[in-house]
Amino acid sequence: LRRLGEDVTEVLDYLPGRFRVLRHVRPKFSCRGCEAVTQAPAPSLPIRRGRASARLLAHVLIAKYADHLPLYRQSEIYARAGLDLQRSTLADWVGHSATLLRPLLNALARHVLAGAVLHADDTPVPVLAPGLGRTSTGRLWAYLRDERPYGGTTPPAVLYRYSPDRRAEHPKTHLAGFRGVLQADGYTGFDGLYDSGQVQEAACWAHVRRHFFELHATGQAPLATEAVRRIGLLYAIEQDICGQPSDSRARQRQARAGPILDSLRAWLDETLARVSGRSDLAVAIRYARSRWEALTRYVADGRLEIDNNPVERTIRPLA
């Protein structure tokens, strides 16, 4: 037979993960002259007297926190592979790993809190409540330092913190020592930070727009549609100046966004006087006007963003 060529068929396959035992053999030696016994020291392990390698610990942590796989379910998966790893053992490993990672967390916190501008947001997370037969609601907080929008070269980083509730004491503790501008939504729990005078507030135009857009989406609120259009003009400017140096961003905002904001403020005040004070549109207008100083702070400071969306994007996958 003469070979004419070949056809190749590719099939995607999967090789299940497997466990292995790493054996560290340490021979013992004795001196014939003095009978002293010598042996190489035991290998350094992540957990003292533990039997888990660094790779296995990393796998358990990623499965739990990145893939949202509870420890009891991991235990069941490992059992199918013929390995008996009780949930209590896995929980012990997670606790020890948290201690090992603490220096990295502290270094990350120092880096983030050293920034002059931070974005902050939080989201509810369900937390298992053993013995209650249900879950409780905790909070996951995110604090973002990102200087790339104005050409900064400092590596961006986000710091996550957990709390069992949403009390104002938690962000106050998380941001202890921070000095600068905090860009966040209208959560009153941040007010204590602003009142100290060491942290300035920068508000979020996306939240303002959302109130008007929900009314606009009904198709029966032309005034809300007009508000959305005017806010859209501000966002068009941001698309043009993204990535430029902070001083250039500030100059262009003052020249281009300043007049739009002056006109928008006057229009909001005129519209509020014409509509019912109990209407949803009036609520949206009062929300914007009550935060006007914080909403317009970004105009004169090119380091700030028009909204808090950067940090919301970091927390959305966890929500």
Rank of each mutant, 00 (worst) to 15 (best):
V299R: 03
P27F: 01
R286E: 06
L281G: 02
G17F: 05
R23M: 11
R32C: 02
A319M: 12
L105R: 09
H59C: 14
G82E: 08
V158K: 14
G152S: 09
E270I: 05
H174V: 10
A236Q: 14
A129H: 10
V127E: 07
L272N: 04
R161I: 13
R55I: 11
I62L: 15
V208W: 00
R256E: 01
P27L: 04
N106I: 11
L268I: 00
D280M: 09
R229E: 12
I260Y: 11
T123E: 01
F178W: 02
E201N: 02
F190W: 01
L56E: 04
F213T: 00
H216Q: 08
R161L: 14
L132Q: 15
W141L: 12
I306S: 04
R278Y: 08
L268E: 01
A120V: 03
G133L: 15
L223S: 13
A116T: 14
G219A: 02
L85F: 12
Y72T: 04
P130N: 13
V8T: 07
Q244S: 04
Q254W: 02
S163M: 14
L144H: 14
T173I: 09
A98T: 05
L4Q: 06
V158D: 10
L22D: 10
A91G: 13
D307F: 07
E226V: 07
D146S: 11
S290A: 07
S44V: 15
P310M: 05
G243D: 06
R249M: 03
R55P: 08
P259F: 03
R265E: 09
N308G: 07
I77T: 12
R249W: 06
I241P: 00
I306F: 11
I315M: 06
